[in-house]
Amino acid sequence: MTIRKMLLASVAVACAAMPMTAFADTSGKKIALSNNYAGNSWRQAMLTSWDKVTGEAVKTGVVAAADPFTTAENQATEQAAQIQNMILQGYDAIVLNAASPTALNGAIKEACDAGITVVSFDGIVTEPCAWRIAVDFKEMGRSQVEYLSKKVPEGGNLLEIRGLAGVFVDDEISAGIHEGVKQFPQFKVAGSVHGDWAQDVAQKAVAGILPSLPEVVGVVTQGGDGYGAAQAIAAAKRPMPVIVMGNREDELKWWKEQKDANGYETMSVSIAPGVSTLAFWVAQQILDGKEVKKDLVVPFLRIDQDNLEQNLANTQAGGVANVEYSQEDALKVIEAAK
């Protein structure tokens, strides 16, 4: 009788302990960030976010170390060597923003073979053994037209500002915008220029095409070009259309000024540099033993009329609106992929 009770009790204890033991403890694990470039404000913000979030995680004992490494030159061969060095340094996971989607595959395979978890984000890699946290640029373009369809239900002409010609991101966002126009046929892309993701280039390009355009109700953009477009349109003394912004500080500041002056309404969408911290938590979850799908999608950072002030206050001068992700956010992204 007592023996049976003891057996039952031990089974109960074992059952209670099961969920605990199913997950490995990550407090002894070391995670490295392999970054290929640090030469613009987006990448600087990405590294700052990494330091902030992982520093906290190391302090509270979630992981043992989370060291960032950046290659001196933006070259795939150098980053491959860097990854191989990380294998030697005994890291348990490598989080990387890759210089090339394919040229690092050999080094990543070596890492996987050594039992290391590899999570790529932003600049993702094609090696099947690595995880990918990708950006859905097409959806980013499509969502702009969807927003405009609610803002201007009767439709009209759109001006499209594209990025740097020949770059994959430019093609993707533009394809998304044209998909959106097909979905909401009341809109028509009346003109399109290349703004190279830079305000001065966008301003010149928009100023050049404006005289040939009929009335424009909306400007769809790729980020880093909204402020330039606004300047050009204001200089031409045309009615201000709805310009979709791209989370840059100067864009948000202009939007705020207009909002205060005449109740101007728009939205702003881009990828937060803090996506590095999302990748960190995903890597931590994988080390923790969680089943994670190999392909995940980054949520956009969207700024609307009501949270403009809050985001503007958090954005550094000359920087990009940012958000740091938490463990719960990572869990949400992982769940969404299932």
Partner: peptide, 8 residues
């Protein structure tokens, strides 16, 4: 590297 890139 297992695959190539024009800037490799």
């Amino acid at each position: 590297t297992t695959s190539a890139d024009a800037n490799i």
